[in-house]
Design a protein around this nucleic acid. Sequence first.
RNA 1: GGAGAUAGUCGAGCAACCGCUGCUAGCUACUUGUAGUUAGGGGAGGAAAGUCCGGGCUCCACAGGGCAGGGUGCCAGGUAACGCCUGGGUAGCGUGAGCUAACGGCCAGUGCAGCAGAGAGUAUACCGCCGAUGGUUCUCUUCGGAGUUCACAGGUAAGGGUGAAAGGGUGCGGUAAGAGCGCACCGCGCGACUGGUAACAGUUCGUGGCACGGUAAACCCCACUCGGAGCAAGACCAAAUAGGCUCCCUAAUGGCGUGGCCCACGUCGGGAGCGGGUAGGUCGCUUGAGCCUUAGAGUGAUUUAAGGCCUAGAUGAAUGGUUGCGCCUGUUUACAGGUUACAGAACCCGGCUUACAGACCAAUCUCUACUU
Length: 129
Amino acid sequence: MTSTVFPRHVRLLTAGDYRRVFDQADAKAQSKQILILARRNELGFARLGLVVAKKHAKRAVDRNEIKRIVRESFRHHQFELENFDCVVLSRVGAKDLDKSELRHMVDQLWTRLRQKPYGNRSRQKPRKQ
RNA sequence: GGAGAUAGUCGAGCAACCGCUGCUAGCUACUUGUAGUUAGGGGAGGAAAGUCCGGGCUCCACAGGGCAGGGUGCCAGGUAACGCCUGGGUAGCGUGAGCUAACGGCCAGUGCAGCAGAGAGUAUACCGCCGAUGGUUCUCUUCGGAGUUCACAGGUAAGGGUGAAAGGGUGCGGUAAGAGCGCACCGCGCGACUGGUAACAGUUCGUGGCACGGUAAACCCCACUCGGAGCAAGACCAAAUAGGCUCCCUAAUGGCGUGGCCCACGUCGGGAGCGGGUAGGUCGCUUGAGCCUUAGAGUGAUUUAAGGCCUAGAUGAAUGGUUGCGCCUGUUUACAGGUUACAGAACCCGGCUUACAGACCAAUCUCUACUU
């Protein structure tokens, strides 16, 4: 199944969803301008959340553009991502990339995310009770 | 033809496919108001921006009055209202069409003014001009004095100089020299008259020798005006956990916990209901001081009437991507790049301000060159 739909339930919607990923990320992929954190869920499909700080892209137009590109990329790659909850964060300089560069970079980051999860390291940490 | 002035419109085409998000209709599930699915149709701006004003709306406060504080400030009109707009006045700029203006009051009070300059606000005397008087200056003399020069009481505001600004201007008279000291003209103040709703204007009349200097985005005075907070307003539904209230059961010779049991120690139980309320959700949420057309009123802003139209409503936040055609730019006849500027709705309107690639258009007006 390689559908490219992007309905509502594949997005992270609440503050709780985001906090779960930030508290303990099972996988991570990053470039100079983009950081992706991910954690496995029990739903059986991948979900996406976006954080584009005003600090990194001052104009609303720039922020919208970054979000759209990442979302479009996720839409095409979501079934390679199994059951990861992904949060994509912008970094300084993300708005200075042109559209095709950014798209290409995000496409690559999904692959890297799948290849090198560092779950072992985080699992060794004692869970807070 | 050239150079300008004013006002307005648009701000991005077409098609296919893949998505997102409301709406409408149908179908399928079940937990009966949600989810899924199919079809149709809608989906960023002229500034959506800055958040600088004004209003609607919501909640809170509020008998009435005063003080404090803020805002506005030529006049009239428009408007729901405004700090906005229109028309007019005045002043300044421009040959002109036109443009610009926080444009009430310093003859209520208080204050301020660097440097320069002699003097800066009931003025001043540096150079200068004049000069009573005095002289062992000098010259002339009709021997009375006259002139000259030096000193000096004093007078003066012509000229020079300083300054952003020196206390009306020009001319004539006048004078020792001067001076509104006097007069004429210009200007100014005050009063009347005329025109105008008014601001204000006047080749009008009278009157006053005549400053009343600047600064109020200095305090201040005067007039008008202003309650506060905002859609994260506010209304409703409502898990988990903790706590509250009411009722019922149990009754300290008790229950529960530690423990095999006793002692001991610690603690006060169980159930039901109710309301507040967090996460989360629903509403508020788009039909409105709305838009378009025509006709009427008005110089105009605007307004009246009739007819027609429904035009985003997201909420970890949609409005996007790919391809082709077309278009633009550069090399050059096939490629490459671009399809863009400023910029992204967040309760809604009216303005203002700021940003902006490019395109269109209208008409009218001004100046100027040339031809006929």
